[in-house]
């Protein structure tokens, strides 16, 4: 499912809202989540899962073309931990033959 397919499904599920409202809502929700993570705030969606940041220590990398060593700064990367309900539903999907 792509973002535009998600938007279509939400339009079908919400006939009371205009197409434009649904499109804007999806954009607003994804921007909100991105903004939160980019300021170091966690996201916790009960039953779905949580997003947090994981620290990556500085290290020496290598330019794959020249083989030259390049220092890489410490950074944070986004991490998602699925919640129990999502884990169970996905695993039940396997048992149900999807």
């Amino acid at each position: 499912m792509t973002k535009s397919e998600l938007i279509e499904r939400l339009i079908d599920a919400h006939p009371e809202l205009s197409v434009k409202d649904v499109e804007l809502a999806v954009k607003t929700m994804l921007d909100h989540m991105t903004d939160a993570l980019s300021t170091g705030e966690r996201i916790e969606i009960r039953g779905f899962g949580s997003f947090s940041l994981h620290y990556r220590a500085p290290r020496m990398g290598r330019n794959p073309k020249t083989g030259e060593a390049v220092p890489l700064a410490a950074k944070y990367v986004p991490h998602f931990k699925p919640g129990k309900e999502l884990r169970d539903q996905v695993n039940d999907g396997l048992k149900a033959g999807y």
Binding site: M1, T2, K3, L10, E16, L17, A25, V90, G93
Partner: peptide
């Protein structure tokens, strides 16, 4: 409406994954 929209946003993603369908939200992940 706002509460229902947020609920169905995560619900649709969950349903898709439960049916073994990958979810691609460009820009986000």
């Amino acid at each position: 409406e706002a509460k229902e929209m947020v609920d169905s946003f995560f619900e649709e993603i969950r349903a898709s994954l439960a049916h073994n369908e990958q979810v691609k939200l460009s820009g986000f992940g």
